[in-house]
């Protein structure tokens, strides 16, 4: 029994209000204030974890009260190899996405709350309180940034004329064939005048916000390997509702899931045919598959 469009909208509205009133102000107040303790690594990781855990707990308790029959997966409570996304309605939550930005006070940290049903994103809300940008959507109800409907203008989608979001990621082993090596080789191909020669690259340091900026069409495409389901679920729903398309980050991977860990997100404002042709062109720039 699938949730109805009206039910999804009610869930979306509830999450949006909660993020704006309860979670956003907390994130905004604490960003950039943890740096001092960061000097002491062991101590600081604890402090960031404290914030992450605290916010996740607030969200989990709020959602459990409102939607007691739904399941919950959060970054902090996730157990590798054990936690699985079921067919049931499941909240997938990142209390603080862009943790490094949060520590440094770079104004691109956010909270990401998504809901999947049958493993597919059906509600998403991402709030960056620093820039006061709350992106939200639910299946069949369109996508919004704050109160404005996201309406990506119809325009051609051509690799060379595109702006792409790219992240270096945390994995930095510089040896032949590592994910880091493949990412840097791909970056070079995307930029080089002898290859894709794309308009430009942007790096925000938050997977959830990269998805949202792709949803609004401010960037045309976001390619990444390494994120987890909680980094992308909410943004994925927003992107799809804004006409965007998600493929796998590795060549040939058309059947991507929220926990695939490797994604290629393309903006709306173009037909599915154009989006798929764009994806195929993009994949040619990737010299070898990323492995997770």
């Amino acid at each position: 029994m699938a949730l109805k469009t009206t039910e999804l909208k009610e869930i979306e509205n509830t999450i949006v209000k909660f993020l704006r009133e309860e979670i956003g102000p907390l994130l905004k107040e604490k960003a950039g204030t943890k740096f001092d303790s960061y000097k002491d690594k062991a101590n600081d990781v604890d402090l960031v974890t404290v914030m992450d855990t605290k916010i996740e707990k607030m969200i989990r308790e709020f959602l459990a009260e409102k939607y007691p029959s739904f399941e919950f997966i959060g970054e902090e409570s996730y157990i590798k190899g054990v936690t699985k996304i079921s067919e049931k309605p499941t909240f997938i939550v990142d209390p603080i996405d862009g943790t490094l930005n949060f520590i440094h006070g770079y104004p691109f940290s956010c909270t990401s709350i998504g809901l999947t049903e049958y493993g597919k994103p059906v509600v998403g809300a991402v709030f960056n309180p620093h820039l006061n940008q709350l992106f939200h959507a639910s299946k069949g109800n369109g996508a919004y940034m704050n109160d404005t409907k996201i309406n990506v203008k119809e325009r051609s989608l051509v690799l060379q004329k595109s702006l792409f979001a790219f992240e270096g990621g945390a994995e930095r082993t510089d040896a032949k064939g590592t994910n880091f090596d493949i990412k840097m080789a791909t970056l070079r191909n995307l930029l080089s005048e002898n290859s894709a020669f794309m308009h430009g690259m942007r790096t925000l340091g938050s997977a959830a916000l990269n998805m949202c900026y792709t949803a609004t069409g401010e960037v045309d495409v976001y390619w990444e390997g390494g994120p987890w389901a909680w980094d992308v679920t909410a943004g994925w729903c927003i992107l799809e509702e804004a006409g965007g398309f998600v493929a796998g980050g590795n060549p040939g991977d058309w059947n991507v899931h929220v926990d695939s860990r490797c994604y290629l997100a393309v903006r709306g404002g173009a037909s599915l045919k154009e989006q798929k042709a764009f994806v195929s062109e993009f994949w040619k720039q990737i010299p070898a598959p990323l492995k997770y």
Binding site: L100, H104, Y106, L163, G168, R172, T173, D174, F180, M184, L187, R188, L191, G200, M201, R202, T203, L204, G205
Partner: peptide, 23 residues
């Protein structure tokens, strides 16, 4: 630029926390 980016990010090089690009 590309070589320097790699050196800055690599765990055997500068191993910076991260890079950002606003354009």
């Amino acid at each position: 630029k590309m070589k320097t980016y790699t050196n800055l990010l690599s765990c055997d090089g500068g191993f910076v926390h991260g890079f950002r690009n606003l354009g």
